[in-house]
Design a protein around this nucleic acid. Structure first.
Length: 422
RNA sequence: GGAGAGGUGGCUGAGCGGUUGAAAGCGCCGGUCUUGAAAACCGGUGUGGGCCUUGUGUCCACCGUGAGUUCAAAUCUCACCCUCUCCGCCA
């Protein structure tokens, strides 16, 4: 969330941010709510001060064994006044906090403004494969090789779920192992394996709640949520903590399944692996000092790209426009990989700097040695990378004329030396 | 799921309803001593918020969370959450 004081003092910046994001949040209603609650707060605090004064006088009266009756009556009167104001104040406070949590982050000034069509391609890597036959779509490839079973996945769970089989399942596991090893051994990340169910506080801290509750899978009996990304449990590792400055930056990587309800997206990308309710992902999360966060974002992006370069999959990087970045992000790069069968660029990673937006919600701070002050850390995360779509790209990029798939060289050690699936 | 114990500052841990924002110790910061370091000793050290005259300013809140009793709650009552121990169940 944003600092309420910052919003109050810079309403124009926030208003512009909302406009750039095409967010309909009613800032004026928020601001008057803030003013009203502070007005009431001042009244109540004055009464508290009065109460404290009576309290002090009361102590003297008792000590000197005088008659306390009139002071007691005074105290009663104050108490009555406080309890009346308090009721209204509490209502306002609940509304205020809820509204505050619905204000998105202010986009960084460097990023393109407006509609997603203004997303800027800042890099392309690799050459699109040339085939001397018509490349098939991944669905056909996978069904021919019997490594993904779409029909049975639907029977077991429903539409847009996956069932990997045989070499398909092995490929999935190989990719996870390859990526985790790369990030832990070469990029300095610590491996984390978190729970896939998290509580409401955790979802609020990273910014999924309260706004996006409809998009989340929720266990209604226990008020748990299925994680939409490892970002949630991993960022929450340090919720309500004060970190040591010398421990920063902290790098974590985690493989988890991710669950997306995608309410309201029916009819869009409904076929194959490109949009599913559950997929695997290796996530990268960083906690850094504020002055380092934009430098760390660039490094994070390189870490994610390295995965694709080692797999030799053509990719491009998009710098997202204000209208396309997520609720909590200040700046975000998307990485898209090319799938020659369906002839589409597929998003496999979003690398974002949240600045102190999540840290403020989650209360993740560190004590700055030089000043002795507590400061919010900056949090970042990026996929390194998402699996289902990566499998699409591998199948379509590495397909052969005979319908077989050659295994990218870096994956072979993870597949027991297998060179092709046929 | 059953029984019991307990949640107090960065940590450990005291706390008869009224000079308790909170003893003590550890840690941390500064100083003395030392060639330097350690030890010892001395001093300091919570967070969040409101207000304006932005100041070594002032006021308020905070002892798991929420409600209640009271003139007054860390302390009493109730509910909830969480942790630990034992038992049960279980991969």
């Amino acid at each position: 969330m944003l600092d309420p004081k910052f919003i109050r003092e810079n309403p124009d910046i926030v208003r512009q941010a909302l406009k750039d994001r095409n967010d309909k949040f009613d800032l004026d209603a928020y601001l008057s709510l803030d003013e009203e609650r502070r007005r009431l707060m001042r009244q109540i605090e004055e009464l508290f001060a009065l109460q404290n004064k009576i309290d002090a006088e009361m102590k003297i009266i008792i000590k000197e064994r005088k008659d306390p009756a009139s002071k007691i009556a005074e105290g009663r009167e104050i108490k009555k006044q406080i309890s009346e104001l308090d009721k209204t104040f509490n209502e306002l406070e609940v509304r205020f906090k809820d509204q505050l949590l619905r204000i998105p982050n202010v986009p960084h000034t460097s990023i393109p403004k407006g509609h997603p069509s203004n997303n800027k391609i800042i890099k392309e890597w690799g050459n699109k494969r040339k085939f001397d036959f018509k490349p098939l779509e991944h669905i056909a490839i996978a069904e021919n090789l019997d490594i993904i079973d779409f029909k049975r996945a639907t029977k077991i769970s429903g539409s847009n779920f996956i069932l990997f089989k045989g070499a398909g399942a092995r490929l999935e596991r190989a990719l996870i192992g390859f990526m985790l090893d790369l990030h832990t051994q070469k990029h300095g990340f610590k491996e984390i394996s978190p729970a896939l169910l998290v509580n409401r506080d955790s979802m609020r801290a990273t910014g999924q709640l309260p706004k996006l509750e409809e998009d989340m899978y929720r266990l209604k009996d226990d008020d748990f949520f299925l994680i939409p990304t490892a970002e949630v449990p991993v960022t929450n590792i340090h919720r309500d903590e004060v970190l040591h400055e010398e421990d920063l930056p902290i790098y974590y990587t985690a493989y988890t399944a991710c669950f997306r309800r995608e309410a309201g997206s029916y009819g869009k990308d409904t076929k194959g692996l490109t949009r599913v309710h559950q997929f695997d992902k290796v996530e990268l999360v960083k906690f850094v000092k504020p002055q380092d966060s934009y430098n760390e974002l660039e490094k994070l992006l390189v870490n994610a790209c390295t995965v694709l370069e080692l797999l030799d999959i053509p990719y491009r990087i998009l710098e997202l426009a204000t209208g396309d970045i997520s609720f909590a992000a200040a700046k975000c790069y998307d990485i898209e990989i090319y799938a020659p069968g369906i002839e589409k660029w597929l998003e496999v990673s979003s690398c974002s700097n949240f600045e102190d937006f999540q840290a403020r919600r989650a209360s993740i701070r560190y004590k700055e040695k030089e000043t002795g002050k507590l400061k919010f850390v900056h949090t970042l995360n990026g996929s390194g990378v998402a699996l289902a779509r990566l499998v699409v790209a591998i199948l379509e990029n590495y397909q052969q004329a005979d319908g077989a798939i050659t295994i990218p060289e870096v994956l072979r050690p993870y597949m027991g030396g297998t060179e092709k699936i046929s």
